[in-house]
C-alpha cells in the first residue's frame, strides 16, 4: 500500500527522502506545490515509488533525485506523474552515479490527460557509469492526450569526460580527486534545488560517499 499524502489548495509540501525505500502517492489540489528530494547516499539498496496526481489546476511538482551507488547495490526509482487537469507544472531531474557492480533503474511515467491543457512537464534523467560492470536501465514513458502542452524528456547515460580528466591530471590532480570534482559538479545541479537548511548536511554525505566511490 502506498502512503498517501494530500496537499490541499494553496499549500506547499517539502519532502526529503534519504537512504530508504518508499512508496508514496501524492494528491495535489489547486495551486499546491510539491518539492520532493530523493537521496540515496549509503550502501542500502532501495526501491522508490513516487506517484503524483495533480487533481487541481495550477499545481507545481518538483522531483529531484541523486543516487550514488556502489558495491552490489541496486536502486530503482519509479515516478508516475499524472496531470489530470490543466495549468500544471511538473519538473523531474534524476541523476544516478553507478560504481562497481551496482545497478540503477529509472522508470518515468508521465501522463497528461485529455483535457489537461497548458501543462508544462519536463523529465530529465542523467547517469554516469563508472565501471564496466555497473548497469543503468532507463525507461521514460510519456502518454500525452492533450494537444496544447509543453512536454519534454531526456535521458542519457555516459562516462566521465576523459578530456576533462586528463586536463585535471595535467595540473597535478590525482585521478581520484579529478573524478571527485567532476562528480560533485554532476551532483550540484540536484543540490541547487535544495533548501538551504538541509543543503550542508546533505553535501557532507555526498562528500563522504564520493570519497569512497571516486578512487
Amino acid at each position: 500500500m502506498s502512503e498517501l499524502i494530500e496537499i490541499s489548495k494553496g499549500q506547499t509540501k517539502n519532502i526529503l527522502l534519504l537512504n530508504k525505500s518508499v512508496d508514496l502517492l501524492v494528491n495535489q489540489y489547486d495551486d499546491s506545490q510539491l518539492n520532493l528530494h530523493v537521496f540515496c547516499l549509503d550502501d542500502s539498496s532501495a526501491e522508490i515509488n513516487i506517484q503524483v496526481r495533480q487533481l487541481g489546476r495550477g499545481c507545481s511538482a518538483k522531483i529531484n533525485a541523486l543516487v550514488l551507488a556502489c558495491g552490489k547495490q541496486e536502486v530503482g526509482i519509479h515516478t508516475n506523474v499524472v496531470h489530470e487537469v490543466g495549468d500544471g507544472i511538473s519538473e523531474q531531474l534524476l541523476k544516478f552515479v553507478l560504481a562497481d557492480e551496482s545497478k540503477g533503474n529509472f522508470r518515468g511515467d508521465l501522463k497528461i490527460a485529455k483535457d489537461a491543457q497548458k501543462v508544462s512537464a519536463r523529465q530529465t534523467n542523467r547517469n554516469i557509469v563508472l565501471s564496466d560492470k555497473a548497469k543503468m536501465r532507463t525507461m521514460p514513458q510519456l502518454e500525452i492526450y492533450a494537444d496544447d502542452v509543453k512536454a519534454s524528456h531526456g535521458a542519457s547515460t555516459g562516462q566521465l569526460d576523459e578530456q576533462a580528466l586528463f586536463y585535471m591530471q595535467q595540473r597535478g590532480l590525482s585521478v581520484g580527486t579529478a573524478r571527485k570534482l567532476l562528480l560533485k559538479a554532476f551532483a550540484s545541479e540536484v543540490m541547487e534545488q535544495l533548501d538551504v537548511a538541509e543543503h550542508d548536511s546533505i553535501e557532507q554525505l555526498i562528500e563522504q560517499r564520493l570519497a569512497r566511490m571516486a578512487i
Binding site: D161, F186, S188
Partner: peptide
Amino acid sequence: YPVEIPGV
C-alpha cells in the same frame, strides 16, 4: 584547446 569543465 583548454577543456571546459562545467560545475568545477
